[in-house]
Structures are given as C-alpha cells and as structure tokens.
Amino acid sequence: MNIAYSPCPNDTFVFHALVHGLIPNTPKFHVTYADIDQTNYWAANREGPEIMKVSYAALPWVLDDYRLLPCGGALGRGCGPLVLQKEKEGRPEDVTGKVVAVPSDRSTAYLLFRLWVAKHVPDGVGEIRIMPFHEIMPAVEKGEVDAGLVIHEARFTYPEYGLHLIEDLGEWWEKDTGHPIPLGAIIARRDLHHEEIAKWIRASVEYAWKHPEASRDYVMEHAQEMSPNVAQSHIELYVNEYTANLGEEGYKAIEVLLGRAKDEGIVPHFDLEKLR
C-alpha cells in the first residue's frame, strides 16, 4: 500500500511503527515524502498514493474521492500563522488595500487569513501574492510586499527581520471559536477499508507514544537539519490527543473552519456531512 506524508518530525514520529512493520497484520507500505502543498494537489487531481496527509483546507476539493480518517493528523493550539509587516506593531486596517504575501492558497493558514480579513478588514486587501514561505519575510523586509502571512518556525524568528506583528491568527481563531486549529488531515481513497486503516494508524500513534526512542533515528534522518531538541518540540506541538482521535471537538473545529470558508466563497461548495 502507498502512503505519502511530509518528512517533518510529527509525521515521521506518527507513522514510524506503521511503515516499519511494527503493527501486526498490516500490509507493507511504500512511503513518498512530500510537502503538504504537493499532496493537496495530488489529491485534488486524483493522483498520488491511496493514503495521504493533506491540509484540512484542501478537503473541499477532494472529499468525493477521499475520506477523512479520524486519526493521524494534526490539530493544535498556540501554533497559528502570523500576519506581519515592517513598519510597526499593527492593526487589521493596516492591510487594507495592501499587497500581502501568503505561502499557499490551499492551506489552513490561508483560510484563517481570508476569514480574518472578511471579519476585520471590511474594505479588503489589495492583492494576495503566493510565494514560497521561506521567501515571505525577506520580501516584507525589503518592501517588495506590504505584509506577509508566515507559518512554522517564522513564529519565533520574525524579529530577526525587523518585522512586527499585525495579528496572531491562531490566537484570533481560538478566541473567536474556542476551537483548536485544524492543520493536517489524513485521507484515504473511498474504495478502501477506512475503519481498518484508522485502526492501524491509531496503533502506530500509540506505539510512538509508548516507545518514543524507537522512532528517534527515523525522525532525525528526515528532520531537515533540525537539532534533536527542535525535532522533539515539533512533535510535542503537533502530536496530541487529536492525533489519536479527532473526537467530537476535533470534528467540530473542522466543520466550523470549512463551513465558514464555504459561506465566504473561499472554497468550493461541498457537503459538510462528507467530513464524517
């Protein structure tokens, strides 16, 4: 069976036991390591492996062909994207009519940004420009764009570029809804046995928690020059109770995010019932 997920520590930690034959009565897995932006489009184009990690924001494009699994993914708190600018600590109206760089147009970060703009920037931004996430802060610093939407480790490094916070979208989302942020989802083709696959993945998560040392070499092999401490922090941030089981709270967070995005016309119309 074929599976695709990122080389990030949270994914390699979660799937180590499954793809190394440590979960009984499972098939042999062939792994493709791919960034989530790549898997988002594979799924939308009916390409790629039978099982994939994609952004929750991509689900409206793929639910006719893939089913959301209730485990293996990532929802979190305190890990949201930031809106930054160069001049000063900002306010929402600072992006009115401005050029804002974003790392993707099919990501949770993008959905949160668009929902925040719809609620707090009534006259809208001037232009949304997509660029690789590692190029966004330098572009804001150089004045090539007015503001930037940043993710990942940029939460901690943006002061090095002389940038200032306009909004922490994760903090805004949690205050506005009370829900965690839906980040990465695990999907499987609809013609597969989903309950069995979910059982395997949940067993892999539980194995990882019970034997954290077992996956250490595998995690660090793919950790893209992270130190062990940074890799461990990454795991602790993104592998949590929702990874083992979305539960009612997890599903509700997803439904609120995608329901709002559908109502704003940010994603195509889809049947919310297909999320469960």
Rank of each mutant, 00 (worst) to 15 (best):
residue 253 A to L: 12
residue 155 R to S: 06
residue 44 A to Y: 04
residue 230 V to E: 00
residue 163 L to N: 04
residue 183 L to A: 08
residue 180 P to I: 07
residue 248 E to W: 15
residue 47 E to S: 11
residue 9 P to D: 00
residue 222 H to P: 10
residue 48 G to C: 13
residue 193 H to F: 13
residue 122 P to H: 11
residue 265 G to C: 14
residue 204 S to Y: 00
residue 262 K to A: 12
residue 213 E to W: 08
residue 75 L to C: 04
residue 84 L to C: 01
residue 172 W to T: 04
residue 242 Y to P: 06
residue 109 A to E: 01
residue 5 Y to M: 09
residue 6 S to M: 10
residue 272 L to V: 11
residue 176 D to V: 15
residue 108 T to K: 00
residue 245 N to R: 15
residue 25 N to H: 02
residue 68 L to V: 07
residue 276 R to W: 14
residue 185 A to V: 02
residue 182 P to M: 09
residue 10 N to V: 14
residue 2 N to L: 11
residue 132 P to H: 12
residue 37 D to S: 12
residue 209 W to E: 01
residue 260 R to T: 12
residue 32 T to A: 12
residue 55 S to P: 13
residue 145 V to K: 05
residue 71 C to E: 03
residue 124 G to I: 02
residue 120 H to K: 13
residue 12 T to C: 06
residue 201 I to L: 03
residue 157 T to D: 07
residue 159 P to H: 04
residue 269 H to Y: 15
residue 72 G to K: 00
residue 269 H to W: 14
residue 19 V to G: 07
residue 136 I to C: 07
residue 104 S to T: 10
residue 250 G to R: 03
residue 117 V to E: 00
residue 145 V to G: 03
residue 112 L to Y: 00
residue 262 K to F: 12
residue 120 H to I: 13
residue 127 E to T: 07
residue 154 A to C: 12
residue 230 V to C: 03
residue 180 P to K: 04
residue 147 A to W: 08
residue 35 D to P: 13
residue 68 L to I: 12
residue 250 G to E: 03
residue 13 F to M: 00
residue 8 C to H: 15
residue 266 I to A: 04
residue 91 R to S: 14
residue 44 A to W: 04
residue 110 Y to W: 07
residue 230 V to R: 14
residue 240 N to L: 03
residue 188 A to G: 11
residue 159 P to F: 11
residue 86 K to F: 09
residue 116 W to A: 08
residue 149 L to A: 08
residue 149 L to G: 05
residue 197 I to V: 01
residue 232 Q to C: 04
residue 141 E to N: 06
residue 134 H to Y: 15
residue 38 Q to S: 14
residue 250 G to M: 05
residue 191 D to C: 10
residue 249 E to P: 08
residue 186 I to F: 10
residue 164 H to T: 06
residue 231 A to Y: 01
residue 65 D to C: 14
residue 20 H to Q: 03
residue 1 M to S: 08
residue 160 E to F: 15
residue 177 T to G: 03
residue 255 E to S: 08
residue 132 P to N: 10
residue 68 L to D: 10
residue 31 V to W: 05
residue 168 D to V: 05
residue 148 G to A: 01
residue 172 W to H: 07
residue 247 G to W: 09
residue 222 H to V: 13
residue 237 L to K: 15
residue 117 V to S: 09
residue 153 E to L: 14
residue 175 K to E: 05
residue 213 E to F: 10
residue 273 E to S: 13
residue 229 N to W: 11
residue 218 Y to K: 08
residue 78 G to D: 02
residue 89 E to L: 14
residue 67 R to D: 02
residue 195 E to K: 06
residue 103 P to S: 02
residue 273 E to G: 11
residue 18 L to E: 00
residue 193 H to T: 11
residue 191 D to F: 09
residue 112 L to T: 01
residue 272 L to C: 13
residue 5 Y to A: 09
residue 89 E to A: 15
residue 126 G to A: 10
residue 186 I to N: 09
residue 49 P to N: 04
residue 198 A to V: 01
residue 227 S to T: 15
residue 259 G to A: 08
residue 129 R to M: 13
residue 227 S to N: 09
residue 165 L to K: 12
residue 83 V to C: 05
residue 158 Y to P: 04
residue 62 V to P: 05
residue 138 P to D: 09
residue 126 G to R: 13
residue 270 F to Y: 09
residue 135 E to D: 09
residue 184 G to N: 11
residue 242 Y to T: 05
residue 12 T to E: 07
residue 131 M to K: 08
residue 81 P to W: 08
residue 220 M to C: 06
residue 221 E to L: 07
residue 258 L to Q: 00
residue 255 E to T: 11
residue 66 Y to C: 14
residue 179 H to A: 15
residue 25 N to E: 02
residue 44 A to E: 01
